[in-house]
């Protein structure tokens, strides 16, 4: 039996020691980095792990050069609608997915290089008032969108050429879905978190809404990041961007919660809180590690199974950090830390 653990005090002054700077890249033309990600890219028969940086009006692909340097291979110029975020597509090569919009997402596009004539192209996948989007394994994309009073939750199968091969509608819950997470190891299971603090579970094959389970009002607007099933329980990593500070738990950032899908009962397993004196966070999770940008301009890294803050990257002389993303599809954990001026630092964790 495991009870929810209050987070131990962070290590005695966690520093960047557990983060090793590998390389950094700087987009001289950019002054407005909005997101950063990694993608496997195939060219001339070889496959390389590349970095993707997004500004409001363009997205750039960076290929590895000798001695930990990066060279810009291509920049896609976008239209008038600004880029809001990059949408990683797990297990996918030579395909970049982006979400565009003003305050909310209104377009999802794919960026690619045509195999026919080696020309870099972009294609439109979806338009609408889109609340949440997530790339799934096997070149699938799930999104929730609103039209009038109706909510649509849809899975799109993407083709290698940047089109959509097929679409399936999932049964929507009554409340708005704000985030999705694949259930690892279960190809047909998907979870989502809603605007009224529920975790919902779908069967992706049939489109059925299987269960709605309440998270609790202490954690408003919880966001799911990762989910896996073990021993008949569904474990979900949630972040709590708006949770209130409490005496026993401090300022909660991430929780690992075990749900019994059969009874819809839940139990907190592990709890990670912000370092003392810090507030605000925008987080990203990979495996058992979480990272978040704090309002102080620092980046905090947690071990979610220990519930402990393991590293703190302070804001540098060039200014505070603005982005923290885990690189996808790398053998070892790699953190991408970005500043608004377009500088991206790669840290091995």
């Amino acid at each position: 039996d495991v009870a929810e653990q209050p987070a131990p005090a962070p290590l005695d002054g966690p520093t960047e020691e557990s983060l090793q700077l590998v390389s950094q890249l700087k987009d001289c033309l950019s002054s407005c980095a909005v997101d950063v990600s990694t993608v496997w890219w195939e060219a001339a028969g070889s496959r390389e792990l590349c970095v993707v940086t997004a500004c409001e009006s363009s997205v750039s692909l960076w290929k590895p050069l000798a001695s930990d340097c990066w060279g810009k291979a291509h920049t896609w110029q976008l239209g008038e609608v600004p880029v809001i975020q990059l949408v990683p597509l797990p297990d996918t090569c030579s395909l970049v997915c982006i979400a565009l919009g003003e305050l909310e997402i209104t377009e999802i596009r794919l960026l690619l290089c045509s195999s026919e004539d080696d020309s870099f192209r972009q294609s439109l996948v979806k338009t609408g008032t889109i609340e949440a989007v997530l790339g799934l394994k096997d070149r699938r994309l799930v999104s929730s969108s609103r039209a009038l009073q109706e909510q649509q939750v849809e899975v799109v199968w993407l083709s290698e050429t940047g089109g959509s091969k097929d679409r399936q509608t999932l049964m929507p819950p009554e409340e708005t879905v704000l985030a999705f997470a694949e259930v690892e190891g279960m190809r047909d299971a998907l979870v989502g978190t809603t605007a009224v603090n529920s975790v919902v579970v779908w069967n992706l094959k049939t489109g059925q809404l299987l269960r709605k389970m309440h998270v609790g009002y202490s954690y408003p607007a919880s966001v799911c990041h990762r989910a896996y099933s073990d021993s008949g329980l569904l474990f979900v990593v949630l972040s709590h961007p708006h949770a209130k500070e409490s005496k026993s738990y401090g300022n909660p950032a991430f929780r690992l919660v075990a749900f019994n899908p059969k009874t819809a009962r839940s139990m907190g397993v592990m709890f990670s809180s912000l370092p003392p004196g810090h507030a605000g966070r925008q987080g990203d999770v990979t495996d058992t590690s979480a990272a978040a940008v704090l309002t102080s301009g620092a980046i905090a890294v947690w071990d979610l199974l220990l519930g402990r803050c393991t590293a703190l990257l302070p804001p540098g002389p060039a200014g505070g950090w603005a982005l923290a993303r885990w690189a996808t599809a790398t053998a070892t954990a790699c953190l991408l830390a970005g500043r608004r001026d377009g500088t991206v630092c790669l840290y091995r964790y």
Partner: peptide, 23 residues
Amino acid sequence: CSESDLGPISLNWFEELSAEAPS
């Protein structure tokens, strides 16, 4: 986590809920 806290646990929860849920 124990059954006393979370209720009866089933290893086949996904298949069982799929069989019960409206399609």
